[in-house]
Design a protein around this nucleic acid. Structure first.
Lengths: 342, 342
DNA sequence: GGCCCTTGTCGAACCGGTAACCCATCGTTA
DNA sequence: TAACGATGGGTTACCGGTTCGACAAGGGCC
């Protein structure tokens, strides 16, 4: 194994000089720096991570805690995880993968041992148990999602309320009067994940403001449950002409069922999906959808932890942040003016 | 920060005794061990990861490199990643998330710096560029997937050939004569991922052996492409009575299209999906499917790296391993005896 | 010419564990 | 009874970086 001392010897300088050349924390003459870089290249030197962490008091690792349960849309979660990883690399950081089953102890473990300099928590619940640990140990952290009390924390999330509102607006603009909201399974609402409620509230309030009659039904996302949900909606409100779907899994079944029921999209019924663009593009007709930038969300989360890690190192109080990413509504082929009442 | 020396002082023993009590590498008297554990608990001691890595020459971290492109089924990939993480924890290891865009350099980076003790590579291609790096640096590794030349490597994967064969057998048993295989988009085949080819080969050979006429068509998985694929199949082989679908995304569209075309599943056409059980359960009718255990796959991969890490530490030559996990065919509601020829 | 400041480099003290080596005690065996 | 192995614990030299303080050389200023 090649060490910094080997490099120093080869370049004819002291170890500390090499260290400074690498970190740039002191000025090094052009000539010496060239010699050192030459030595590093020929010897194929890679600084030892453990030693660096020990001496520098920074592991250059952030932990990312991901959910285990399958109720969340996995590709969306993964996309955020990837974005976090890529963004972290740009800060010279690597990402440690933690699973939610470790719970608060996991956060404790990686933070107290200095394994990770900071933590990003996904799938934050309103009364998340991990939050107290962050406060108790002063762990630099960023949350993706909103807890009930975000004081003293940095949180980033999609602006679900606006997403819901955009749907209501679009349908109102098209002249629809009776609209239905097909949500997640009731487990998600019981879990108090927050995002489901926020979307629904945003939708309902705007719908009311625009004079729409709206209906909300939870849906597990299987074909059968979607069939049941749709049947109940049409029984309760036969005049429903538009559907907003938040449960990604229910989209395919819903389209099938509408078609099977003789309703053409968008002529007889409009459909808006709250889902990633790629998903919306896959269906036929291509779906008008509201999507939120996941890559930016991941980057933002990383920026937040980095700021907190720096603040922590300088024994400075970090700023609280609560950032909501605005969603975007893309009109495709699944929405059209409301059909004339017959 | 509480250090091992603090614990030692509190317990009235030397630092090394605490270290040995923790690692269990030497016998420690019951009494001393109790005092030490007491001290650890009251002081809330957590060993410093960096120091441990430096002194012990083990970071207790394995790197997991995941694919970036969206052609693979993301939930499946995620499930494996989670299984790896959980299994690693049981060995006292944590998992570092690397993305495929770092390529061979990423492997190099984490291995040479001692950040990770070993590496697990997912989405291995036949001519994977990362494999030479493993050989060159002698990085302890396990591959999920098979490269063209697995010599000197530990590989684990699903037994896709058998999965394909199981499909052919089941359909032959039910008396089908003309069967179609709906595969992945052509990009997957061009990428030489291996698994697509292996499934197809396994299917074709068994189909031939059982006297079936088989047809293979690639499919991108969108509604339109599935419609095109299905139309071509029925045009080329109007007598086709059974479909094997490997592309998870094509499943929903296929069922919709068959229904729309007036073919009832399974009375008029049988469908087998090669996909996770949860997915198969979601559709209507519930699908007969061939699935492979992802959790076990992840565990196996971890076992393999661990063995290689140990071998590496003892300067011992590890055994090459090539483990294929047998798939399982579960009969549900989407397959039935072939309809009588009219 | 003396003084001070800047720039570039070195020496050495850590950082917090690990493990090799040494030593004392005690029970066992020839 | 002397020799010996097993058991339990201490001493100390690392592991490979980071960083503070010291210091020499060179330039500008009075």
């Amino acid at each position: 194994m090649v060490t910094l001392v080997d490099v120093a010897r080869y370049a004819g300088v002291s170890a500390s000089t090499v260290s400074y050349a690498l970190s740039g924390k002191r000025s090094i003459s052009r000539k010496t720096r060239d010699r050192i870089e030459q030595a590093i290249a020929t010897l194929d030197y890679h600084p030892n991570a453990g030693a660096r962490a020990l001496a520098g008091k920074r592991s250059h690792i952030i932990a990312l805690m991901v959910p285990l349960h399958t109720e969340v849309h996995v590709p969306t979660m993964m996309e955020i995880a990837i974005a976090v990883t890529v963004a972290a690399r740009e800060h010279g950081y690597d990402v440690l993968l933690l699973t939610n089953d470790e719970g608060p102890d996991g956060v404790q473990r990686v933070a107290a041992s200095g394994l990770a300099d900071g933590v990003i928590l996904m799938d934050v619940r309103l009364d998340d148990e991990r939050v107290p640990v962050l406060h108790a140990r002063g762990v630099p952290a960023a949350l993706i999602g909103l807890p009930a009390d975000p004081a003293g924390l940095s949180c980033v999330d999609h602006d679900f309320a606006t997403a819901g509102a955009l749907c209501a607006d679009h349908l109102a603009d098209l002249g629809h009067r009776d609209v239905a909201f097909i949500g997640y399974g009731s487990a998600v609402y019981q879990r108090h994940a927050g995002y489901a409620e926020r979307t629904l509230t945003g939708f309902r309030e705007r719908a009311e403001a625009r004079g729409l009659r709206s209906l909300h039904r939870p849906c597990e996302g299987t074909y059968e449950s979607t069939a049941g949900t749709l049947a109940r909606i049409l029984a309760d409100r036969p005049d429903t002409t538009a559907f907003v779907v938040q449960n990604e899994r229910a989209i395919g079944p819903l389209l099938s069922l509408l078609r099977a029921g003789g309703r053409t999209v968008p002529e007889d019924a409009s459909v808006i999906a709250i889902c990633p663009d790629v998903l919306a593009e896959q269906h036929s007709p291509r779906l008008t959808s509201v999507s939120s930038p996941k890559k930016e969300l991941g980057q933002l989360a990383v920026d937040q932890v980095m700021a907190r890690i720096d603040a922590h190192a300088e024994a400075r109080d970090p700023e609280d942040r609560l950032l909501l990413m605005p969603p975007e509504l893309v009109v495709r082929e699944s929405t059209a003016p409301a059909p004339r009442r017959t």
